[in-house]
Design a protein around this nucleic acid. Structure first.
Lengths: 203, 203, 203, 203
DNA sequence: AATGAATGAGAGTTCATTCAT
DNA sequence: AATGAATGAACTCTCATTCAT
């Protein structure tokens, strides 16, 4: 049980992070200043530095913590004993796309970071983001291994399938961010993409 | 025919660009300083500023000019009347992957920029990179349209297929950057990925 | 009523401006560096840039704000209903000369700017300084118009008289800056000059 | 007798100076670059540095040499035994105004320099310009001394009269630079100003 | 404990002058 | 002797972080 002070701290930290997220997502890391975050969040600079060791670490936090949520979701799906491999893949695709739609800002940053070469400036973040990504891929790999065992999938190397699938999912989810689609159109497009992936495009 | 001076200028400009490319690719835009480029390239600052109006413009140049080469290659393939749609796609995949392998640094920067939210700082570059990407996608779209007409491809919306294909190509090419594969292994993997895409993964 | 912080800010801003004034007045705009102002004023660079957007703007401020005070004084004199036109002119002359003696540094800068062809570098300042000057001349013109109406002055074009008077005043005031005159000698010389101007030098 | 080479050198030097004059006069000292002068004059940088030790010295030359011409003219007038003191003054006024009209660019620079506080940057030039000015004033002072001796002028201190006259002349000449007056209007205005000065403005 | 003013290292860029060709 | 490319010191300005209040 948290004391009132601890709960307060957590709330403040969260509010700061929320504001920072918006600014980082719209302006990028380098064009965002701590002063901006302080001003917009209405928390004094000193307070921000009480909760975060520095700008980099804050950005770090932002990306990792949010994306971890997606990790949980995908993990749950991959471990679900009640559904088959195909459904697992499809669910993963839908879950990731939904997550992207619901967390546009984080995802922008996450993707930006996944491909960022500014790694020198933030080696730790880069490493963690990539570690996370690898973990997601191996989650998929597990599903593909299963599917091959069950004779459902062709026996391509599971790692390659997983990497490809991961990128397809990402691609579909990402492009959905820039369309003004309603829920139905969105779902239809995802199904179609999943179809392409599973059945191929050839007649 | 270029004069000696012109050739010299071109050579120097190229050398500076080469050095800048390496540093930008390994440290990112913001962590790279003009002083570094000057020191490592062994060209004094003044000389660098003779060839480039500023740091941003240099980076700009780096990305755009190199990537344009890839554009030419893919355009040639898409327009080639001698080969069928399937071969066009496969060739595109191979060409892009080869280009990526041969231009690791540029590609790193290109991709970094494609997904960058620092667009605020360099709106022009961001715009051009995205314009280029769209042009590539519509190149693919043309191929898919053709294939559908010819009854070779299932009739998914060509735009969606093109977007998906573009990301698969990119994914395959990108992941190949981080493997120590020989030429043969590389080609085999690409073929396999192309196979997955065209025939699907389902039995 | 100002808060303590506001008063502090005003004091600091004033101290910086004071130092800058001295340095600008003795070395000119281009030979003065922000680092010098920082060092001599003992305010760090960052603090200076908190109060002023840039070097140019600071210089701008320096010139305009101070000179505006002279404007108020001359305006008051020109509008005073209690005194005649001749006294108005004489008062203007004395007031301007006093102002010059009390604000040597500002005046140096003001005059330097009035005649500066570096206008390309600081068009805005140049414009404002010249606008100010024109306003002063038209203030005088009003007095001359009045004097002509009252039959006190010969009917030369008031605009020409005003321009001439303005330069005479300036000339007298300026030259007084470079003499070690006591108050009495100074006043005597001004009276004499005024006499020359009003009565002519011919027997 | 000058050798051909010497004549050539003189011509080239003159051409460079001519170009430099135009640029300096329109952009000011600091906003003018040696590269500009080289490009516009079509003389290579090296050649310019052959004729002038540096940028400052060139500017120096520009101002001093031209203004010296005015000095000669005024000197001739002041020494002319054939004309009276009043005519000498009037002639000086007209001569100076004509010179200003004919040498707008030099005069702009000269005046800019007379009032410039950038003296730190160019102490030598500043000194020479002021020395020249003092010489002109003492030329006038001689005329006034003469006039007082002859009982033509009231016996104000000749130095003060000279300083005042010098500034009036300058004022009239300067303001004429910014009017689109024809020769006649110009002459009329000068006469009027001279009238004001000699007879006063009072009825 | 909370604040936000103070700090100054370090960034990009310019241009007078030199000197190898 | 003539050239103009090469040079790098010095400039203005920014902002993450600290620490006196």
């Amino acid at each position: 049980m948290l004391s009132r002070k601890e709960r307060d701290d957590l709330r403040k930290r969260g509010e700061i992070l929320e504001t920072a997220l918006e600014i980082f997502a719209s302006r990028g890391f380098h064009s965002t200043t701590m002063a901006q975050i302080s001003k917009i969040s209405q928390y004094p600079l000193g307070t921000i530095y009480k909760y975060f060791p520095g700008k980099k670490e804050m950005y770090h936090d932002l990306v990792i913590n949010r994306v971890r949520d997606l990790g949980y979701i995908l993990f749950e799906i991959s471990q679900d004993p009640k559904i088959g491999v195909c459904e697992k893949l499809k669910s993963s695709l839908f879950a990731q796309a939904s997550f992207y739609r619901a967390n546009r800002e984080v995802v922008k940053i996450y993707i930006s970071e996944r491909n960022n070469i500014d790694a020198v400036a933030m080696p730790k973040l880069n490493e963690r983001v990539n570690t996370f990504h690898e973990r997601m891929v191996s989650l998929f790999q597990g599903i593909f291994d299963q599917g091959i065992d069950q004779g459902k999938f062709k026996s391509y190397p599971a790692g390659d399938m997983a990497a490809l699938f991961s990128d397809i999912v990402h691609s579909a989810a990402w492009s959905s961010l820039f369309r003004d689609e309603d829920e139905m159109g969105f779902n239809k497009r995802l199904s179609m993409i999943f179809d392409m992936f599973t059945n191929g495009i050839l007649h």
